[in-house]
Write a protein that binds this DNA or RNA. Structure first.
Length: 619
DNA sequence: CCCCCCCC
């Protein structure tokens, strides 16, 4: 299908006519957007206003409704965004001074069309003198179609008895003269528009600095009945609009720039995005009832295992607990990032971890007004497979605390009656069983025995598996216990001694008088079910051995038997090991390596109490 | 004009 297949110019003539009989016969048009209208308008059965369509002839587009008898074409996917259709029968109706096309019969032609044909503009004047055409009567009390897009032209239309903006709810003197457009109607070719849209998410302010300069920016997602679009503000626009724009509120926005969306950076299905500019006007709109609310599609926590990792989804649950803010260093950017772990529970009897990042993590819970065990709804969070399933906030994810929606009230009632005393099966407690010893914050069932680690084939898939074991050091391998490392901060690469006696680091491109010694621990550990070899790095090895690698190097230089004694003393101690299992191939042999990510001495008193509790639970 | 979405 190409632009030439469309009946160019048809839209204007269709709108001018009353129906097929005096209009265009069988025009071929493209559907730019199709949107189910879920705000239950009691309106007109004649109109059957269930699906709102933006219809294009390649030159112009205009607003249309799919007649209710053709609803199934939308429901079964026969027609969709970008479909090319032949309009067999239509009518053009005057609804509150706007012309709305009603598509009474149509057929799909050609195969799927992947893109918008041509560069259609909004029909400048879709209004007509009252009484012309075949006006659709509004029954008493009947609601007008949701948002009154002057869309294609509620501007000062010839013969219109109303002022141009008379129908604009919550409007003001600002933005005067610019018709309200559906978001789907925006394009770079037309800049006289106003959208009335709800902010569904707002990012943190982000600062950047690269070779091209530096600055700050933020972005919001905007929603109306027709679709969604991302809008970004840079520098001055951050100062002007960041505070004004708030999640879930509705705004009139005009005089911003529409440009081609960089699709790879957006998960919204819109070819375009908006940039706020110096001339941009934004005003909160108090009459927001006709702009759709954020829609959630909640996945119960126990169903998360059916969601593919890396997908996004919406989850609602009671905030059972949350941790302290901590800092990690991003592997990709090498920059420190704050994070905070929340634990959500729901009626499915399971709990899941939700990670918050950056400022929102630091400012939680104050920024969310969190009281005791609130209901938390999150939208667009990333599903991870850490420890089964986990959740992680994106910059584009949104969080609502105690939202006023049925699911929230249901959870509140359930939690206050039953949930508060229930036990929840976690997806994972990996990483929580650390300093506290045996399962601090975790439960004993989640810990594995060494036999289980083998029986469950952990580390045999492409991705690493993580597990915890409580085991006793049996033996520490005595040769190659350390390597000569680069002494630069956070380099740790192996350095070799050159002919000049200096130690050279290829990565840092520097030479040093002395290397830093760092452990490469290989230790055999055992529990009641068996034994296994674990690899460990410097920090955990220091803790286990009780000396730095440099100290131990000196000891061995001076007294070989003392060296052996130090290693003997390190054995027969019990630790909680957080480990990672991953395949690796060396000399054509593939085997699973088990690496310590954290080792913590067992707190026997605490572990004993936990065992007692576990036994009690069986009785 | 950013574009990373992180870690165990």
């Amino acid at each position: 299908m190409s632009l030439s297949d469309l009946t160019q110019g048809a839209i204007a003539r269709m709108v001018e006519s009353t129906d097929t009989s005096n209009g265009v016969q069988n025009p071929v048009c493209q559907i730019l957007s199709i949107k189910k209208i879920s705000s239950t308008s009691t309106a007109n059965p004649n109109v059957g206003d269930r699906y709102r369509i933006i219809l294009s002839d390649g030159v112009h587009f205009a607003q249309a409704m799919l007649a209710s008898q053709k609803r199934q074409m939308a429901e079964n996917g026969e027609i969709d965004r970008n479909s090319v259709v032949r309009v067999l029968q239509y009518s053009s109706n005057n609804v509150q001074n706007r012309r709305i096309l009603i598509l009474l019969d149509l057929e799909v032609i050609g195969g799927p069309t992947p893109e918008r044909l041509g560069a259609p503009k909004a029909l400048e004047d879709q209004a007509r003198p009252a009484g012309a055409g075949a006006p659709v009567k509004q029954e008493n009390g009947a609601t007008a179609p949701a948002t009154s897009y002057g869309g294609a032209g509620a501007g000062a239309s010839a013969g219109s008895t109303k002022p141009a903006m008379g129908g604009r709810p919550g409007g003001s003197s600002m933005n005067a003269g610019l018709p309200i457009y559906p978001i789907e109607g925006l394009s770079p070719y037309q800049n006289k528009w106003t959208i009335k849209a709800r902010v569904t998410s707002k990012s943190d302010i982000r600062h950047w600095s690269n070779q091209r300069g530096e600055g700050k920016l933020f972005s919001v997602k905007l929603l109306d009945e027709s679709g969604e679009i991302k809008a970004t503000g840079f520098n001055d626009a951050v100062d002007r609009f960041y505070g004004l724009l708030q999640e879930n509120k509705v705004y009139l926005i005009s005089k911003a720039k529409v440009s081609i969306a960089k699709k790879q950076f957006s998960n919204l299905s819109n070819e375009y995005e908006i940039m706020f500019e110096n001339s941009t006007e934004i005003e909160e709109c108090t009459d927001a009832s006709d702009v759709p609310e954020v829609k959630y599609e909640f996945v119960p926590i126990d169903q998360l295992e059916n969601v593919e990792p890396n997908q996004t989804c919406d989850v609602i649950g009671v905030l059972e607990s949350y941790g302290e803010v901590s800092e990690i260093v991003s592997k990709a950017s090498q920059r420190p990032v704050s994070k905070r772990e929340l634990t959500l529970v729901d009626q499915s009897g399971r709990s899941v971890r939700l990670t918050m990042w950056g400022k929102s993590a630091e400012n939680f819970p104050q920024n969310q007004g969190v009281d005791d065990k609130p209901v938390i709804a999150v939208k667009g969070v990333k599903v991870g497979d850490f420890g089964g399933r986990s959740l992680s906030m994106f910059g584009s994810s949104t969080m609502m605390v105690n939202p006023d929606i049925p699911e929230s009230h249901g959870l509140r009632g359930w939690y206050d009656n039953d949930g508060a005393t229930a036990n929840f099966k976690p997806y994972s407690n990996v990483g929580m069983a650390g300093a506290g010893g045996a399962g601090a914050g975790g439960n004993l069932a989640e810990r594995r025995s060494i036999a289980q680690v083998r029986d469950e084939n952990l580390g045999m898939s492409e991705k690493p598996d993580y597990f915890n074991i409580r085991a006793t050091i049996v033996y520490i391998k005595q040769d190659n216990l350390w390597y000569t490392a680069c002494p630069s901060d956070s380099c740790n690469k192996k350095v070799n001694q050159e002919n000049d006696g200096l130690w050279r680091c290829e990565k840092c491109d520097k030479s040093f008088e002395e290397p830093q010694y760092r452990y490469l621990l290989s230790t055999n550990v055992a529990d009641m079910s068996g034994q296994m070899w674990l690899s460990g790095f410097n920090d955990d090895a220091e803790q286990i051995i009780g000396k730095t690698a440099s100290e131990l190097y000196q000891i061995r230089e001076e007294n070989e038997s003392e060296y052996t004694a130090v290693l003997h003393r390190a054995a027969n101690r019990m630790y909680m090991f957080n480990c990672r299992a991953k395949q690796d191939t060396f000399n054509d042999t593939t085997r699973v390596r088990y690496t310590i990510s954290r080792a913590a001495p067992v707190d026997f008193a605490k572990a004993g109490h936990e065992l007692a509790e576990a036994i009690k639970a069986y009785l």
